[in-house]
């Protein structure tokens, strides 16, 4: 069991860093603008991240499995560690980075090392989802912003009332955002461990918790730990950093980005769309930060499109290419060392 925990540690570390950084996308503005106390933001975020991961985490994780099924736990450890290292390195040099892109690059690195073929159709699906994610968030941001403004103008709500409703709204969309974050991004944290999950299904009061759910639960706990131990610092800087937006804008940003994350994670929604004969969205882990940037751009366009820094889109594009590439290379090198220096079985 100890060995298992050691091997899981890289995934748990990835979860911790996701909680530390990405929780700020959900509750950052609410906390930094003093609309909500950090304590409450952290509690709500943790509960809903765990719910999202355990209830809705399977879909996006399955897609990662199709891309490359890492079949030895030491391999999974190395893949998650390499992804975590890539996120760390990219952050250090202040380049935009997403855990989703790092883990995909790391899996492809493992495919190269192990000689397994990368499923090109899955990879294409994933890459097109990455491009679609900020665009869809921008469309949601734009439409929701316009709709809300028309509503506020027509209803002539008092400024203090708007403040109250925004406060309540931020709690609800924050909870929804945390759920979506858990459902969509747990695949990044624990996805590579699914094929080699060391746990057995357990029965608790009539409910069966599958081995994957236990894995996701542990990953979600790591995300929660990241939220409680480190996200306060990130949240308090969010308000004064690039997201200098009002609480009302924040409400739309969180709602739009959460909707995008939800769309790319919900098996239920996918089944519903298919049952109506509509085109469905692939279940792929996407970057919550890029969804947030997309939503902000949507609002900025809704406000007349002045002072938009389109350079940020270029940076996101660079992240799409650079992060998986770097992550793939690091994984390849680390797998080599793991296999030949530490004598661990990274491929079955």
């Amino acid at each position: 069991m100890d060995t298992i925990l050691i091997f899981l540690s890289s995934g748990l570390f990835l979860g911790w860093s996701l909680g530390a950084n990405d929780a700020a996308n959900v509750f950052g503005t609410a906390v930094s603008t003093k609309m909500l106390k950090f304590k409450w933001a952290a509690i709500i975020c943790s509960i809903f991240v765990i719910l999202g991961a355990v209830i809705g985490g399977a879909g996006a994780s399955e897609t990662l499995g199709k891309l490359g099924s890492v079949n030895a736990i030491a391999g999974s450890f190395t893949v998650a560690l390499a992804a975590g290292l890539t996120v760390f390195l990219m952050t250090r040099v202040k380049l935009p980075v997403s855990t989703s892109q790092a883990i995909v690059g790391a899996i492809i690195g493992w495919n190269f090392f192990s000689g397994f073929k990368t499923d090109i159709s899955t990879l294409t699906k994933i890459v097109y989802t990455w491009v679609l994610c900020p665009i869809l968030a921008a469309i949601f941001g734009f439409v929701l912003y316009k709709a809300l403004i028309i509503y506020i103008r027509r209803s002539k709500i008092h400024m203090i009332r708007i403040d109250q409703y925004t406060r309540i709204g931020l709690i609800f969309v924050g909870a929804f955002g945390s759920y979506s974050l858990g459902a969509n991004n747990i695949a990044n944290v624990m996805g590579v461990f699914v094929p080699v999950s060391p746990f057995k299904s357990i029965n608790i009061a009539g409910f069966t918790l599958s081995n994957t759910s236990i894995l996701f639960f542990l990953g979600a706990l790591a995300i929660s730990l990241g939220v409680f131990t480190y996200s306060k610092k990130v949240m308090t800087t969010v308000g004064s950093d690039i997201f200098r937006i009002s609480p009302l804008d924040a409400f739309i940003v969180v709602l739009s980005s959460s909707l995008v994350l939800f769309i790319f994670a919900s098996e239920g929604l996918q089944a519903l769309l298919i049952s109506f004969g509509l085109p469905s969205f692939p279940l792929v882990p996407v970057s919550s930060s890029q969804a947030v940037v997309g939503a902000i751009l949507g609002i900025a366009i809704g406000k007349g499109g002045k002072n938009i820094n389109f350079g940020i889109m270029g940076k996101i594009g660079m992240g799409w290419v650079l992060t998986p590439f770097l992550s793939g290379v690091i994984t390849f090198i680390m797998l080599f060392f793991m296999q030949n220096v530490f004598m661990q079985k990274v491929v079955l």
Binding site: T33, K34, M35, M159, I160, D163, Q164, S246, P247
Partner: peptide, 11 residues
């Protein structure tokens, strides 16, 4: 009551 944090200075 920490109301309208972004516009209370203006108010």
């Amino acid at each position: 009551h920490m109301l309208i944090p972004e516009s209370r200075g203006d108010v």
